[in-house]
């Protein structure tokens, strides 16, 4: 499904790879643009089906699908993002990444600061730790065994207790049915085991918003707090959701991102956002 009826799908070639791109408003190319880097699940659509069109209501948004290559590193993935930005955007961009995409965004911002106007890191991390390794071990085991337990395991670890218990049983079944067997994310899972962007993160200077998720079982909020600790020019906001925050609370992310991008330096570095009161 198209993000919105106005979105223009395109392709660019980079290093012999064809990268699919999505541009909400090519005619507004000269304006500030939000560039979205998707998560482990494989496509811009699967991470940003909600957030892309929501952000595009008012701003120009560009996204693309990462292409997996053998032995991919943070830098080779970041190169794809740089190529898309060079091809579709004129000035520095508002770079937003979620999960795996946050890792790549942070790496990119630390290594090519000149193309980043602001940086939003949602449920990202700096270096894979032993807790994550345990989950990856289970995941790879289920994958090897082609286990029927895989979809349920992925749903259980991706969504928060609060979110799942608000659904009807049939709706949770539908989530499990839809998430697939995980093969679409195999290559990125291999990469995720090896993440260490410590050096790049130390060089991030762009105004940054770090968003961590209270009930994240895949990348516990500890990691977002570490990012906040590592990036001098960062603000921090917490969203009470699971790792699949882009599905659980797209409107909450929208408010945080819109507000931040409007004036990235409004809140002083080190600001921890007060919880939003309902």
């Amino acid at each position: 499904m198209a993000f919105t009826s106005d979105v223009v799908d395109g392709e660019i070639t980079h290093d012999g790879l064809t990268i699919r791109t999505y541009d909400s408003a090519p005619h507004r190319r000269g304006e500030d643009t939000i560039v979205l880097l998707h998560g482990t699940s494989g496509s811009a659509q699967s991470t940003y089906w909600a957030l892309f069109p929501m952000l595009a209501d008012g701003r120009r948004v560009v996204a693309f699908d990462f292409v997996d290559t053998d032995g991919a590193t943070a830098d080779t993935y970041a190169d794809q993002a740089r190529a898309v930005i060079a091809a579709l955007c004129d000035g520095p961009v508002h770079l937003t990444g979620c999960s795996f995409g946050a890792v790549i965004a942070a790496h990119l911002a630390g290594t090519t600061p000149e193309i980043v106007k602001s940086l939003t890191l949602i449920a990202g991390w700096i270096k894979t730790d032993i807790h994550q390794h345990l989950r990856y071990d289970v995941w790879f085991k289920l994958h090897e065994e082609k286990s029927a337990a895989m979809p349920g395991f992925m749903v259980m670890t991706a969504f928060s207790h609060a979110f799942l218990t608000m659904r009807l049983p049939g709706e949770v079944d539908a989530l499990v049915a839809k998430i697939g067997d995980g093969s679409d994310r195999y290559a990125k899972m291999v990469f995720n085991r090896t993440v260490d962007i410590t050096d790049a993160v130390a060089n991030i200077t762009a105004p940054t918003l770090v968003i961590g998720c209270t009930q994240d079982q895949m990348v516990p909020i500890y990691h977002s707090k570490l990012l906040f600790g590592a990036i001098e020019n960062a603000r921090f906001a917490e969203v009470p959701s699971g790792h699949a925050v882009a599905h659980e609370r797209p409107s909450h992310l929208l408010m945080l991102i819109r507000d931040f991008i409007d004036e990235p330096e409004r809140d002083a570095p080190g600001t921890v956002h007060a919880p939003i009161h309902a």
């Binding site: 209501d57 609060a162 608000m166 009470p240 797209p250 919880p275």
Partner: peptide, 27 residues
């Protein structure tokens, strides 16, 4: 209770894109 309230609030807030007729939300 306040957390539950927020969960409910954001659930409703995420329905507004239906009113913007964003295809995925309408579907």
């Amino acid at each position: 209770l306040q957390d539950f309230r927020k969960e409910l609030f954001w659930g409703n807030e995420s329905r507004f894109p239906q009113r913007l007729q964003i295809p995925a939300f309408l579907a």
